[in-house]
Design a protein around this nucleic acid. Structure first.
Lengths: 155, 155
DNA sequence: TATTGTTATACTCTATAACTATA
DNA sequence: TATAGTTATAGAGTATAACAATA
């Protein structure tokens, strides 16, 4: 029998979930003077510690030129500072300012709070069924997508 | 007990799924001469039929000025054409060209094929558990997000 | 008066290519 | 020679504001 309509309906649920999560996770960024791309940089710095722009470009899979602009903007708005690399005078190390580090910590707390809202109190069986189903779909999807080794950055 | 780590892990699965789906669904757009934003316009036209630019702006929740640019681009590349509105001479009706209509039909077929790849052959119980879990999370999330009445456009 | 779509202007993200300084 | 980051240039998406034509 043809379950095509059920499959499309399930895909639409996943898509709606993605849209809603995206809307929610972007809330407050503008108020903090951040855009999504700049937040990705902050998130990466939060995970990696002080990094060269080349490392950031590779991690975010954007051009070095793009990182120059994003770091310019983050520096101008007080989230990060450029510091000389101790052993390679071509490179710069991008560090958090105190403000930037605080914002990054808050982003992480917000993410934890968001996960709590989504899942806390859900029946244990339903939660584990959901996780199992997501894993099954991810297992099908990962081989189809290049760069699936990429870490997820989700400011 | 604290299941915070489990919740964050589950959220990360959803985020990874969103990223991978996004990557996959964008594949081929560039080869067809489309960007994501222009594809949203095509998708909306496919759902709604010929529409005024105002209707498209409202549906996509972008400014009228932005729609002008997107329709300019789609018209210049042969996907749509502007036609006079039969009863309101201020407005224009955006129609598909034959090529644009064909591409929109193909996008829909691709979406169905993608749903098939993700879900076909999955054990019935696992599939329905997954759908139930997604519904539960969506029920929690929708009230938190403004505009949750928005239709999902996922070119 | 209100609405439709435009021109004018500006900002953000993105890319490639050429260049400087350094390795 | 190769690498890190810049300037130069360009294109796409987005927004607000002012304006013309029409309702």
């Amino acid at each position: 029998m043809d379950r095509s309509a059920d499959h499309v309906a399930a895909l639409n649920r996943v898509l709606e979930l993605a849209v809603l999560i995206n809307i929610d996770m972007r809330r407050g960024l503008a108020e903090r003077g951040l855009t999504e791309s700049r937040t990705h940089v902050l998130w990466e710095l939060h995970q990696r510690g002080p990094s060269t722009q080349r490392e950031l470009a590779d991690a975010l899979r954007v051009s070095p030129r793009n990182i120059t602009g994003l770091v310019d903007a983050l520096a101008a708005t007080g989230f990060v500072s450029r510091q000389p690399h101790p052993s390679d005078r071509r490179a710069t190390l991008v560090h958090f300012t105190e403000h930037g580090a605080e914002v990054a910590r808050r982003l992480e707390r917000d993410q934890q709070e968001f996960a709590r809202v989504l899942f806390t109190g859900m029946p244990k069986t339903q939660f584990s069924n959901l996780v199992d189903g997501l894993d099954a779909v991810l297992d099908r999807l990962r081989p189809l997508v290049p760069l699936h080794d990429r870490d997820i950055d989700d400011g």
